[in-house]
Design a protein around this nucleic acid. Structure first.
Lengths: 341, 341
DNA sequence: CTGTTAGCGCTTTCAG
DNA sequence: CTGAAAGCGCTAACAG
């Protein structure tokens, strides 16, 4: 079962290559019987057309590049699942690459994808600045870009994510509604997404006439997973010593939330009796935590779906030379109430 | 910044295409100064060679296809992370596809990858039979196959996974060592992997002179996630009514383990006091469960790494027309003792 | 309805 | 050291 080509079929059936090509793409200008004969031979010999050659000719690969920071992060893997599913349905495939939160690697990924001739790139950019100009250039010429997740940047294209401020505000409000007043907000280092969430947190406090206290903000360096727990524990200890222990914690990322619940359990701090916990989390198993975790879950799969759909949309409109009106789509994050608050 | 080609460079610098081609691949037959001039121009205009054209010519795409059942399963996403990392280092890229536990979709994925001209396919096959003959054919001719995770089949190639029987036996022994005698084994439907694990479970019992009781085996249909919990709860209820409640549970898959711990918490069954729990799990957050979960964790990232390395190994040896000796590599799964037993 | 031809961008002999 | 030419497998314009 060696790979056979159009030429092989043409020779075997005593036809020309172009006839075979047209027949297999079901062109109307080919006789029915000829088509049948060709189709039969092709099937029998397991002919699979050579996408490479076709792409070289047509200038279209039907491959979309996707860049995320880490595949194994559950939020991203859910997005990727959505992307793969939708792309397959639309006859596209995806090459997935990891930027590992590193702008230089991200640049390399972009270049590789570009040289592979991908029709477009879906990306959750490492930073709000690093490769943005480069992406903008690509987008304006050869290679359309669609942004997902980290949508706080000035790139003029489709951006799919959630309204982070709103989601954070809602979570905070939920705590306040339940009479928690002294809320510690744990977040990552400065970036668009965490800043939005912080703003949402602060706005909720303000609306309820609660003064935001600087000591109720902890920024963790997420690049060093090992010490995240220490950073949190230190903070809690200090607050306790100052007699300012929080009655609730609001965590701003998946990793922080899941680590925090583990840490509190380990420290035998009762949730929610001593400290309540709410946070962003897309773990499939938040309900298996004990207590089951109350969390803000992003519609990850849907983000992926929409991102690829918008990309195909761009590709389509560009081909038809039609104008494209870009939009930023902020989906609704879901607040799942369980038992940790 | 439109895409530029060798031809563009050649014309601009008044050289021939072949000279430019050779210069950019640093051929020794090109003058140093010419190389420099060409390199400078290429960099300035952001030349990215067209992989498509090169592949068509060389017959090599440097793309490896990967087929898993679901990307968002944490075990697979960890494998994918390893695959992506290693492949990038070796100048390969991966196209990831999902078979969704469906042989027909799996077949489709294989065909698409084949027609894309991937250099090889890494796959965790849906079943021990469905597309195996087809894969064997591909492997023997054009497109080498490497199997990972589900390695209980007759395909003659590299297979990377773990020794499931051994891992299950060890987990069971650990329970027995701690004086649990009445152990309920919860597993999935009949397949190579779960069968191996069941065998390991039974062997451990036997070695300790414990009779295996048919009522201590529950097979769940994993395709219907929603009812898994019900199936487990029903079983526990029945056993209780018969006065045969287990003192420990050994779960055979990620999903089952994580669902079971959630269910037990929900039912207010104290772990490990009333029932102990041990199981396979590759969740990143097993330590955040409460109690922290004692589990068997597979070296997923490593499985991915090895799989791609073996693939590149095959590609290499085939090119050199050297003989290849296939082996099945069973890595060691790790037993992580925490507090659920 | 079928065939001829040119060419996508690149690599690779072979000549000069 | 540099260039001309062929060809990878396919599509598409054009001819017949």
């Amino acid at each position: 079962m060696k790979k056979i080509t159009l030429k092989d079929i043409a020779i075997a059936l005593n036809l020309s290559v172009s006839t075979v090509s047209k027949a297999l793409s079901d062109s109307h200008e080919i006789n029915k019987d000829t088509k049948k004969k060709i189709a039969a031979y092709a099937r029998k010999h397991n002919y699979q057309y050579n996408t490479l050659a076709r792409s070289l000719k047509t200038g279209k690969t039907n491959i979309i590049g996707v860049i995320v920071s880490t595949i194994s992060n559950s939020f991203f893997s859910q997005i990727l699942e959505g992307i793969e599913e939708s792309s397959l349905m639309q006859q596209y495939n995806v090459i997935i690459m990891q930027s590992r939160e590193n702008p230089a690697i991200e640049k390399k990924c972009i270049d590789i994808l570009y040289s592979k001739g991908v029709d477009g790139i879906l990306i959750s950019p490492v930073s709000d600045s690093a490769n943005l100009n480069y992406l903008q250039q690509l987008h304006q010429t050869d290679c359309p870009i669609v942004i997902f997740d980290r949508i706080n940047n000035h790139l003029n294209t489709f951006k799919i994510g959630i309204d982070n401020k709103k989601a954070a505000k809602r979570a905070t409000q939920e705590l306040i509604n339940r009479n928690y007043r002294n809320i510690l907000h744990i977040t990552g280092l400065n970036n668009g997404v965490t800043n939005e969430r912080l703003t949402g947190f602060q706005e909720a406090l303000k609306q309820n006439n609660i003064t935001f206290q600087e000591h109720n903000l902890l920024r963790c360096d997420l690049s060093q997973i090992e010490i995240v727990e220490n950073q949190i524990l230190n903070k809690l200890t200090k607050l306790k010593q100052a007699n300012k222990s929080p009655d609730a914690i609001f965590t701003a990322t998946d990793l922080l939330t899941n680590r925090t619940i583990g840490l509190l359990a380990q420290q035998k701090i009762k949730i929610p009796d001593e400290i309540a916990l709410i946070g962003f989390s897309n773990t499939n198993y938040a309900f298996s935590f004990n207590p089951p975790l109350t969390c803000i879950s992003q519609p990850a799969k849907n983000i992926g779906k929409l991102a690829i759909e918008k990309m195909i949309n761009i590709l389509d409109l560009r081909m038809k030379k039609r104008e494209i009106v870009y939009e930023t789509i902020a989906l609704e994050a879901e607040l799942i109430i369980r038992e940790s608050i």
